[in-house]
């Protein structure tokens, strides 16, 4: 903790701040603001009510108008502070509003109706988190189902992808066979074909195989990626062949060499690939949108999209769900980011 503080308050040296310190910190704060402000704004907005979201000018913190339950009325009445006229300074509850006049009552003496001009009152607001945005996700929408779909697709697709890619990379880096370069070139060549071009044929194949509207239809087509094969191959090239020879002399089968020697030694590259795959699969939108049409198969991204109607958008639910969708990926990144940095450095550098 002390070291973190030391790092965050590091200066150029000397007791007084040099002008470069000021410049650096200004620059860094600007960067932090630029990157974090939208995220924080999103989180704040996700706690606002629908009415609060529509307000102009917008507020940073979520506010809600205070209400009060008064005998004789079915619903809680909104509270207003009176800023002018006969009742200035009082806090009244509004019964109804008619044109430019509002009918209000004093909570202290609920029998008497008072008339106030609408320009003479200001809503009584307090900082309140609209947690119902979140609870509603679980009550009204099947958030957990979407979450499960997304998790299932992400985890399965990542595992299958790591397995197939690492096996291909092992073969392409450690076995000398006729046509190895050609295979590698074909694999890398597929990088040049945009996904949108093969979308229709891919869709036909998936439909033909009966995987339309199934989670496997999302998982299988992306199970092998050229980038993954290439990344792992380049890393595996750095593993000395003598270690494999030693394992062969130790009577290890080729499968065992792959499983016990190659995979553990490629762990940094595999970690990088796993993180990339998780992020890609979790955030993937286009392909699931095409394959999954029934709402019980929706991933979170598709569910988010469905909140956005043609005429009306349920912003409060949409924002709350966006936050929940971001969380897992942010956590993954937080815990594994050191592997990304070291992994990318060592896959490229050696």
């Amino acid at each position: 903790m002390i070291r973190v503080w030391e790092f965050l308050t590091a200066t150029r040296g000397g007791a007084r701040l040099h002008w470069t310190d000021w410049a650096s910190y200004a620059y860094l704060f600007f960067g932090v603001f630029l990157m974090f402000f939208p995220v924080i704004w999103l989180v704040m907005s996700s706690f606002k009510t629908e009415a609060d979201l529509q307000r102009y000018p917008p507020t940073f913190l979520p506010y809600q108008q205070q209400t009060l339950m008064i005998d004789g009325y079915d619903a809680p009445l909104p509270l207003f502070e009176i800023t002018g006229g006969a009742y200035e300074g009082m806090i009244l509850a509004q019964v109804r509003r008619v044109g430019l006049q509002a009918q209000m009552i004093d909570p202290a003496s609920p029998g008497e109706r008072l008339r106030v001009g609408i320009e003479d009152r200001v809503p009584v607001e307090r900082f309140t988190l609209a947690t119902e945005n979140y609870t509603e996700l679980f009550e009204r929408f099947s958030f957990l189902l979407y979450f499960w779909n997304s998790t299932f697709i992400t985890v399965m697709a990542t595992l299958i992808m790591l397995l197939t890619n690492s096996m291909a990379a092992f073969a392409l880096s450690k076995y000398d066979f006729r046509g190895r370069t050609a295979v590698l070139l074909i694999v890398i060549g597929t990088l040049m074909i945009p996904q949108t071009v093969v979308l229709v044929p891919l869709f036909l194949i998936v439909t033909e195989l009966g995987m339309f509207n199934s989670l496997w239809g999302v998982i299988i087509p992306g199970a092998a990626t050229p980038t993954g094969v290439f990344l792992l191959r380049q890393y595996m090239l750095t593993i000395p062949d003598e270690i494999l020879d030693a394992a062969r002399m130790d009577k290890a089968s080729e499968w065992k060499i792959y499983w016990r020697i190659i995979l553990p030694l490629s762990a940094p590259a595999i970690a990088v690939l796993a993180i990339l795959a998780i992020m890609w699969r979790w955030n993937d939108f286009l392909w699931p949108l095409i394959v999954l049409t029934r709402s019980e198969n929706f991933t979170l991204q598709l569910a988010l999209n469905s909140f956005q109607g043609e005429l009306q958008t349920d912003w409060s639910s949409l924002l709350a769900m966006t936050v929940l969708t971001l969380l897992p990926i942010a956590l993954v990144f937080m815990f594994l980011q050191k592997y990304i940095a070291t992994g990318i450095a060592s896959t490229g550098g050696k």
Partner: peptide, 30 residues
Amino acid sequence: ADRGLAMVFQSYALYPHMTVRQNLSFGLEN
């Protein structure tokens, strides 16, 4: 693997991710 030979390599070729004990027992496990 089946010739009944054992080899010591120039670079030692120890399995870097295994402890010495695991290095020694890998062949026997197989």
